[in-house]
Design a binder for these strands. Structure first.
Lengths: 348, 348
DNA sequence: ATGAAAGCGCTAACAA
DNA sequence: TTGTTAGCGCTTTCAT
């Protein structure tokens, strides 16, 4: 015989606080928002009443008229450790503010992205940070027209939203130059095949592939350009490497478009009985924890995810204050982290 | 000269829908909630008006009186890939419902957990799923008294909330038995040191350590029990393994309390110039993607994260419907996944 | 089965 | 500086 669960006690409201402090609800509201027009004496009284009663404002109710003090972050794939870096940068920057971050979980595909962005808008969030979205420009512009928005990890400028991204073009060149400097000429690339022409020019994967080709040309290696088109997944890396290893003349180095892709490639290479880096070099992109893990020790491009996140947070707070401010684009420079998966090519 | 950004158009409300469909707002509300008391004819008219106008309900406003159709998930550490499994199970189960999942990000420490849980309550979420919380029982009970709650990955029964967890005691025994069957006797364990006596008996890490000791005794290896107390992090694994390797007589097998700990241990072992599994065996817990990655190929305990998540979602939906239902505890059985980091001990 | 009307807790325009 | 009051968009009695 269970005792029935007690119903939750009625929540303390602004009215309770006002009564307790012997002031009007307006006064309490003003104190809550640090708004103009309360005497210090009154402010203290209200603060004390809030503390004594353990009052916390109801965000839903606030949202009906003003802000909800909530920022929504759309994360495409919770498994990619690089996104965790961005998130850290974000939350660190937002920690001292009144804003609460809530994440929209794993959305793969445009419908899922639309569902999450709509869900956030429907919940009256004050601002949105979209990480590596694959939605159409039209959808992004629509979202940004409705709520302050920052887009992370996607190139292309909009006047509706701010954006923060890594210079993927330069990042790809860092890898190619590193490998070429080591003496490699047959440098292949595994890319995420962009099916959608709408955002072809905006996606990091496409830009990395373009940067790879441009850098190869700049090094006089135009004839050696060799791309396996798969996806930015571990499987994609596995399959891509298999394709490349099956070439009549094998590449001596593989530039994987993302660390997770490099993981799959390493797998395929080991399976083929080849050694890294003695027989073949491998480089990734993102400098994830995975890459840094010593038994793997993957050469990779570091995107400074923490800074990306911090910048996105800053831009968003700015825009919440002034929605008319012209849109800004922040491009962060990547750096190469050389580890043990890249070395000079084997003697012929 | 930027054209000024157009102000977002006024949102469609239930009033617009009612006018468009020539019915009352009450009728629209009922249709939205599939409530009793609308004729099929009226329902269709309303549905059509909703579609034509592209109406989406304002969740904040709904929350003022009824539900917000939002479920909050508190995730302690976004980097642990095991949590992603749970999340998948959750979202899959919730995909067909009207509920939207929002994640409270990385909270380490009790204050952070309290902040996130409060934030979710303040936003009138309909239910909470707390994954591996480290809060006090008192706080958990308080939360659960306020809003339907399911606690995941923590033992101990409450009548206020439902819980789902893996049988960590049995899981630890799986590892010990596996290693003992291979011929190991000097089987050491790296645990997450539980500083807090309040939830000592409830935390998976403590239960795994207890299970390890019990299983060792059951195998007649009581004298060989050897525990390094660190934390469930990669660093913790690194340090723990260093401690164990420095013993006068080295263990021949290490049972790391979590895959991430095993990663750090592998690192330390490699650094010490030892081979896995020839010189020393290593097993983890969680069966993360990391463990499955072939170049690592870590023997680990699989917790069926997907099922954990699905069960949690089911229990929560149940409880939202009936808050008086007695609390349920679900214990899922773990399985051992044998890979290449465990083998018979070296000949003496 | 249908709709009018009263709030939910808060903010913001307005009066005092 | 202070308080009064009218909503925000929705749900929910309660008449009809």
């Amino acid at each position: 015989m269970d005792t029935p669960v007690a119903p939750p006690p009625r929540r303390i409201t602004i009215v309770d606080v006002a009564q307790h402090a012997q002031v009007s609800t307006t006064a309490v509201s003003k104190v809550l928002r640090n708004a103009y027009g309360v005497s210090p004496k009154m402010r203290d009284r209200v603060r004390q009443a809030i503390a004594e009663l353990g009052y916390r404002p109801n965000a839903a109710a606030r949202g009906m008229r003003g802000q909800t003090y909530t920022i929504g972050v759309m994360l495409p794939n919770i498994r990619n450790p690089f996104f965790a870096e961005i998130l850290d940068g974000l939350t660190d920057h937002l920690a001292d503010t009144d804003y609460q971050v809530l994440l929209g979980p794993g959305c793969n595909g445009r419908e899922a992205e639309a569902k999450v962005t709509h869900a956030m808008i429907d919940r009256s969030m004050d601002g949105l940070i979209l990480i590596a979205p694959i939605s159409t420009r039209a959808h992004l512009d629509h979202v940004a027209a409705t709520v302050p928005t920052v887009v992370v990890g996607r190139h292309g400028r909009s006047r509706a939203y701010d954006s923060v991204a890594d210079d993927d073009f330069a990042g790809a060149a860092l890898v190619v130059d590193h490998l070429a400097d080591l003496g490699h000429t047959r440098i292949a690339h595994i890319e995420h095949h962009e099916t959608d022409r709408d955002c072809l020019a905006e996606m990091p994967n496409a830009i990395r592939a373009a940067g790879y080709q441009q850098a190869m040309r700049a090094r006089g290696l135009a004839d050696e350009i060799d791309i396996a088109s798969t996806t930015y997944t571990q499987d994609g890396g596995y399959l891509g490497a298999q394709q490349l290893l099956a070439r009549p003349v094998r590449p001596t180095a593989i530039f994987a478009g993302a660390d997770i892709v490099a993981m799959g490639a390493l797998d395929a290479i080991a399976e083929a009985g080849l050694r890294v880096p003695e027989d073949i070099s491998v480089a990734g992109y993102d400098n994830t924890t995975f890459a840094a893990f010593r038994p793997i020790s993957l050469t990779s491009v570091d995107q400074a995810g923490h800074q990306i996140g911090a910048n996105a947070a800053r831009l968003l707070l700015d825009r919440i204050v002034d929605r008319q401010r012209p849109a800004a684009q922040v491009r962060l420079s990547p750096t190469l982290v050389t580890r043990h998966t890249t070395a000079p090519p084997p003697a012929p």
